[in-house]
Structures are given as C-alpha cells and as structure tokens.
Design a protein around this nucleic acid. Structure first.
Lengths: 130, 130
DNA sequence: CAGTATCCATTTGGATACTG
DNA sequence: CAGTATCCAAATGGATACTG
C-alpha cells in the first residue's frame, strides 16, 4: 500500500462518486431533478419555448421559481438562453445536447411513474391504512 | 364537442399528466428524486441494507432525514422494510420491483451526469465568468 | 414580454439527546 | 441497532408589485 494525502472521495477531479458528501455531481443532480427543474427540462425536450409559454406548460410554477430554476439549468449547461432583440422582448429557452440527454432520461422516469401510478396509489393506501 | 364537468387534468384516475398542477405523480417523483431519496434508492439497487449501513453509504445524511426519506419511499411502494426479531434489532431495507425499475433509471441519470461532469464544470465556469 | 425585488409562510434539514 | 423527539437555522417557494 502506498501512503497518500489525497483521498479519492474528496478530490473533485477524479472519478466522481455521488455517494461522497462533497461530490460535485450532487448539486447538479438536484438542479436537474428539483420540483421545477425536472418539469422545465422535459417541457423543453419537445422544443424551444419562451418564458411565459414555458410557465404555462409547467402548471403551477411562479415567475420567481421558473426564473431561478432556468438560471441554474443554464449555469449547469443544460439550457440555452437566447435573447432576441425585439419589442416586446423575446427570450427563447432550449436544451443543450447534454440537457437533451438528461431530459430524455427524466422523461423516461416520468413515464414509468405515471404508468405505474395505480400501483403507487395502492401502496400509499395500504401504508396509510396501518 | 360534448360538455363535461370533469376536466381531464384534474381527474386523478385518468391519464396522469405531470404537467398538471394537481397530478399525483408530482409528489411521488419528488420523493424519488429528492436529495436523499435518489441516493437511497440507488444504494439499495446494489442489494438490501440495514439502516446504519445505508446511512454510511449515503454519506452526509442525518438519521432523521434518512428515516423520513425511507418512510416516504416505503409509502410510495418503492422500498420494503423488514423487521427481523433479534437483539439488537435488525431492520433490512430493500427495493420493491417498482423501486428497482426507478432505481435503474436514476442510476443511469447519475452515470450520465458523473460522466459529463467536466462539461458541466466548464459551463459553470463560463457562466460565473460573465 | 420577460423578468426582478420584496416580503413572508412553509418546508427542509441538521445537531443533539433520548428510547425500546 | 434503529430509530424518535425536540429545537432551531437555512433554504425553498409563493404572492404581489414593479421595471426595461
């Protein structure tokens, strides 16, 4: 065994391991799977959308939360923000290549959960009945 | 067109649509993709674990959060909780069939994000440099 | 239209101590 | 060992009003 002063699970440049406390992938995953992040990514998977169109699609999201969610997704490289010079202002949101891959996986997850929802409801009813 | 007093996007028994505000799949997805729910599910994908073993695997989770996370996952039918009568007490956590399918998808998502982490870091640096 | 600013309520989450 | 109970700090999230 060789002695080392650099434990793998703290070095951010080698072999990311999400199970380690400080892994950089954790906050990225949280942005992508957050309440509104997940829905925004999947909504954009069907094509680019402007701010208010996206807000209508993601039913229930406030302006503030959609705005900050999109900023996080843009920062992580999942979403492109394109400002079109015009009056009134137009801003188009679209997925990057990476964002599209993430969105595909999330769409699969949603499809799975929606499809098995009766099973989930049953489990919930059984659990609550105890 | 036929008149109806039951809009599809509010009736919870037909065609769940996650984009609708009251869709029952939303809280289920949030439990599965929450900060600790995602890690617990994927950790259990490698085999059943006892409470403290799971806690060690999911680095950084508190007892309280792991406990409440597991309760949510059990309620939704993703996790089985088995109490083995013994002293000291033993409780085994494992995935249901549905939980295993969800965990597979989440593991794929994690693998994707970990693998593309350099790309994400680059995007973050570019964004922060503005 | 596409946000930002402000304020406030709710939720989440962590530390610690304790129990069967 | 496998939790629960309590307390408190911080983050999340919503409503509303306002701006370029």
């Amino acid at each position: 065994m060789t002695a080392t002063s650099v434990p793998d699970d703290v070095d951010p440049t080698l072999e990311p391991d999400v199970f380690s406390r400080d892994c950089a992938s954790r906050p990225v995953l949280q942005n992508a799977t957050s309440r509104w992040g997940l829905l925004a990514l999947v909504a954009l998977g069907d094509g680019e959308l402007r701010f208010n169109a996206l807000r209508r699609r993601v039913d229930g999201v406030s302006e503030r939360m959609l705005s900050s969610t999109l900023q996080s997704l843009e920062r992580d490289g999942f979403v492109n923000r394109t400002v079109l010079q015009a009056i009134p202002p137009r801003v188009e949101y679209s997925l990057t290549d990476l964002g599209a891959e993430v969105a595909d996986r999330l769409a699969g997850l949603i499809e799975l959960v929606e499809g098995r929802l009766p099973e989930v409801r049953k489990a919930q009813d059984d659990y609550d009945a105890r």
